[in-house]
Design a protein around this nucleic acid. Sequence first.
DNA 1: CATCGATGTTGAG
DNA 2: TCAACCTCGATGG
Length: 304
Amino acid sequence: MPEGHSVHRIANQFEAHFVGHRIAASSPQGRFADGAAQLDGLTMTDAEAVGKQLFLEFAERQDAPRRWLRVHLGIYGAWDFAGDVSVDPTVLASIGAPRRTRLRMAESEKETELTEFPPPPVGQVRVRLLTDTAVADLRGPTACEVLTPEEVAAVIATLGPDPIVDPGQASEDRFVEAVRKRRTPIGLLLMDQTVVAGIGNVYRAELLYRAGLNPHTPGNTLPEDVVRALWRDWAHLLNIGVRTGQMLTMDGLDAEGRARALANRDDRHWVYRRAGLPCRTCGTNVVLEVAAARKLYWCPVCQA
DNA sequence: CATCGATGTTGAG
DNA sequence: TCAACCTCGATGG
């Protein structure tokens, strides 16, 4: 699935083109007919991303009770936007006019031509959210449900800090404390959404590499400054991800390297998906091991 | 064209 | 620990 950065971009897209608009909600696939009926005709009043979860708020009127749609894309979910939407939602404010197009927002983003509006739903569309000028289709989510504000608060309470939602020192402190009180290996703690929200398998491998950390190191044996640096690096990479829409983890590259990283996913990471290939730094073969049913890539020399 | 695998989570056993 | 969820791009024949 998209890791935290994409979910923030999706929230930005909703913020820019759906919030403040009256929404026609439907479930072309039928599996979310009841939920869609609860939202149909309401106005979207807010769009928030926390970790990998997306929350869209709806209300009848300004002072009316609020309802939230909670969406988690899981491993292969995606939102498809079409109509007047931003090709790059993060630059909308400076560019102004949206572009009439079709945009898939999942693990990667792809733009295609739009011939009619609204486009007929393609495939299994769980939810369609339609305004006069823009449409969002959700497919393949692992979670899609209508919640009360209290239920949303309860979900968010289970999540660790997200550096974009809470950029302050308190979030860093929370992360440091959560990591340093547990014997669990840091490689698993980074994937634990109650410890930090939004990191997935790619960012985990890359953050550990960048920190020179052995994934098996127990959290409670890590020096405080190492854990703080880890948090700051996550915040740094997340911001790059939200800005570019790509999980670029090899910053500091020259212009040529940057172009290569943007063009080829094989040249984009230090260790992720590089099992058996030489480490870019020391030449040692990158190791692949399976931990908690996920593939973990790391360099046994650089991350000794 | 068939098969595989994935940037994730939940819940059963 | 592992299957299920449910989609689609990449890969191989």
